[in-house]
């Protein structure tokens, strides 16, 4: 039970996990086991993890149903795209664009969150959908973004940067989730009236979760612009929001671990469905319906993997028998 601040054994386990996966990826890529095609898939999975986890913060942890996530991804993508085109087509350019995207997303996020988060459930979903589309239409009509034709960019982002960003996103969102503000968000999800009665400023925490989620969606967008050559406004319609939603629902609303697993699993399934892209959408649709009917909690429900829980499980089993 003795925990000495940040230097406890669980955090050491986590650090080790991060390094081992990095080493593994590095080795496999160096050895040529992961070729360029698979690497591109992996990078897509990384970006999807960031998107799914950040949407899960809003939907799963805080219970606020947003369908506007693609709008924030669009902001990040275009911020990076514009900087790459006009300032520097390099990793530095992407990072600068990412920073600008984050700032814009915070401002837009606050503008969207203030009025809409007073709405509940399905009304909120439609309002955020509307905002997401407005963001996209504004970007579509700007000169600097080259309108509907989109922007052709160079690939400057490599996998280590995406890996670092994925880890950063997970650390921030998990740490947020397991803290007093995170518990406040969970309370809002469970029962807004009761949360308010227990002294929680529900508006403040809803906005906090929404803006934090928007920021990471924007980060994912910037990374996307840095490694996929082309960005166009019609890549960020609310269909994209729904694609992210599928990941969250599949993994389990409220489980960050679930979102990560869902992004990986669906990423690999997509490789196999690549040659039947028309069937892919049919399968997505059926999957959503079936999950909701037969397993509404998704893969993991609200369960979360943690070393401390694993440790407790192992030790208690050893002690009882």
């Amino acid at each position: 039970m003795k925990e000495r601040g940040i230097f406890n054994k669980y955090n050491a386990f986590w650090l080790a996990t991060i390094l081992v996966i990095f080493g593994l990826l590095f080795g496999l890529i160096a050895a040529g086991v992961i070729n360029q095609v698979y690497l591109t898939v992996l990078m897509g999975i990384g970006i999807n993890i960031i998107l799914a986890v950040s949407l899960n913060l809003i939907i799963g942890l805080t219970g606020q149903f947003s369908l506007g996530h693609a709008g924030f991804m669009c902001i990040g993508a275009y911020a990076a795209g514009v900087v790459m085109k006009n300032v520097s087509s390099s990793v530095g350019g992407v990072l600068l664009g990412m920073l600008i995207g984050i700032l814009i997303s915070v401002v837009v996020g606050l503008l969207v969150a203030g009025p809409t988060l007073r709405l509940r459930g399905d009304y909120l979903a439609i309002a955020t959908l509307g905002f997401g589309e407005i963001i996209r239409i504004v970007i579509l009509n700007m000169n600097i973004t080259n309108g509907a034709a989109g922007m052709v960019l160079q690939k400057v982002v490599d996998w280590p940067l995406i890996y670092i960003m994925v880890v950063l996103t997970l650390v921030v969102i998990l740490n947020f989730g397991r803290s007093a503000p995170g518990r406040a968000c969970l309370a809002i999800r469970e029962d807004e009236v009761a949360a308010e009665a227990m002294g929680i400023n529900t508006t403040k925490y809803k906005i906090m979760a929404f803006v934090l989620g928007a920021v990471f969606a924007s980060v994912a967008g910037s990374l996307y612009a840095g490694c996929y050559y082309v960005i166009k406004p019609d890549m960020f319609t609310f269909n994209k929001s729904i694609e992210i939603l599928v990941l969250v629902v599949f993994g389990g609303m409220g489980s960050i671990t679930g979102s990560v697993i869902a992004a990986i699993v669906i990423g690999f399934i997509n490789i196999f469905l690549q040659s039947f892209s028309d069937i892919r959408m049919i399968v997505y649709g059926l999957a959503l319906v079936c999950i909701m009917i037969f397993r509404p909690g998704g893969l993991l429900g609200t369960k979360e993997f943690s070393y401390s829980a694993l440790y407790k499980k192992l030790t208690s089993k050893g002690a009882s028998k």
């Binding site: 399905d122 979903a125 629902v249 649709g285 319906v289 909701m292």
Partner: peptide, 22 residues
Amino acid sequence: TRIAALITAIGVSYFLEASTQK
């Protein structure tokens, strides 16, 4: 929950669009 129903409806929508495309 109403959210679960809404997600299902989105799934049906996807299914109908994609099937028609097919």
